[in-house]
Lab assay of single mutants.
Amino acid sequence: QNEKLANELKSLLDELNVNELATGSLNTYYKRTIKISGQKAMYALKSKDFKKMSEAKYQLQKIYNEIDEA
């Protein structure tokens, strides 16, 4: 289960640069939040902690959705 979550989180991290570029014309909230979420996700992957990875995955998905809707 950890392996599956780690792969999903890696996949979301692969999209980080594209989504970060998409924040160029948006409010600074999005820029700041996506950077923080990305850092948390990288830390969670290194720690291999299921709870941290779950939270990081949720945060990344949430900010990606917010950027898409903005």
Score class of each variant (00 low, 15 high):
67 I>H: 02
22 A>T: 06
35 K>N: 05
63 I>P: 00
37 S>Q: 14
32 R>I: 14
20 E>W: 14
22 A>R: 15
32 R>N: 12
58 Y>T: 09
45 L>R: 00
66 E>K: 06
30 Y>I: 05
25 S>M: 10
10 K>C: 08
43 Y>P: 01
52 K>W: 05
32 R>F: 12
9 L>T: 00
15 E>Y: 14
30 Y>F: 10
29 Y>D: 03
43 Y>N: 13
30 Y>P: 02
13 L>V: 03
62 K>L: 06
17 N>M: 14
39 Q>S: 07
4 K>A: 11
1 Q>K: 10
4 K>L: 11
36 I>G: 03
40 K>A: 11
63 I>H: 01
36 I>K: 06
24 G>Q: 15
9 L>H: 00
69 E>W: 12
36 I>F: 08
47 S>E: 08
55 E>F: 06
54 S>F: 09
56 A>D: 00
66 E>L: 11
18 V>S: 11
53 M>L: 03
53 M>Q: 01
33 T>P: 02
17 N>A: 14
52 K>L: 15
18 V>A: 12
54 S>D: 05
21 L>H: 06
59 Q>Y: 13
5 L>Y: 02
11 S>E: 11
56 A>L: 03
10 K>I: 08
32 R>W: 13
32 R>L: 12
48 K>S: 04
29 Y>K: 05
67 I>E: 01
4 K>G: 06
65 N>T: 10
26 L>N: 04
61 Q>I: 12
34 I>Q: 00
56 A>T: 02
44 A>K: 01
53 M>V: 01
55 E>D: 08
51 K>N: 09
1 Q>C: 13
12 L>P: 00
38 G>K: 13
33 T>Y: 11
11 S>K: 14
20 E>S: 09
21 L>V: 08
61 Q>V: 06
40 K>M: 13
25 S>R: 11
1 Q>Y: 10
62 K>M: 07
11 S>P: 00
31 K>M: 07
57 K>I: 15
59 Q>V: 08
67 I>K: 02
11 S>T: 12
45 L>K: 01
1 Q>A: 13
43 Y>E: 15
40 K>V: 09
67 I>V: 03
19 N>T: 06
23 T>D: 05
42 M>D: 05
66 E>M: 12
46 K>N: 07
67 I>S: 02
49 D>H: 03
10 K>T: 04
26 L>E: 06
15 E>T: 08
34 I>V: 08
51 K>V: 11
61 Q>E: 10
29 Y>L: 04
51 K>P: 03
33 T>L: 15
11 S>I: 12
59 Q>G: 05
19 N>Q: 11
15 E>I: 13
48 K>W: 06
5 L>V: 06
62 K>T: 05
13 L>Y: 02
18 V>K: 13
55 E>K: 07
53 M>H: 01
63 I>A: 03
58 Y>P: 01
32 R>E: 14
26 L>F: 04
28 T>V: 13
60 L>R: 00
28 T>F: 13
67 I>R: 02
40 K>Y: 15
2 N>C: 14
43 Y>D: 15
9 L>M: 01
9 L>I: 05
6 A>S: 05
29 Y>N: 03
31 K>P: 02
51 K>D: 07
69 E>G: 08
65 N>I: 08
19 N>G: 04
2 N>Q: 13
48 K>L: 12
34 I>G: 00
49 D>E: 07
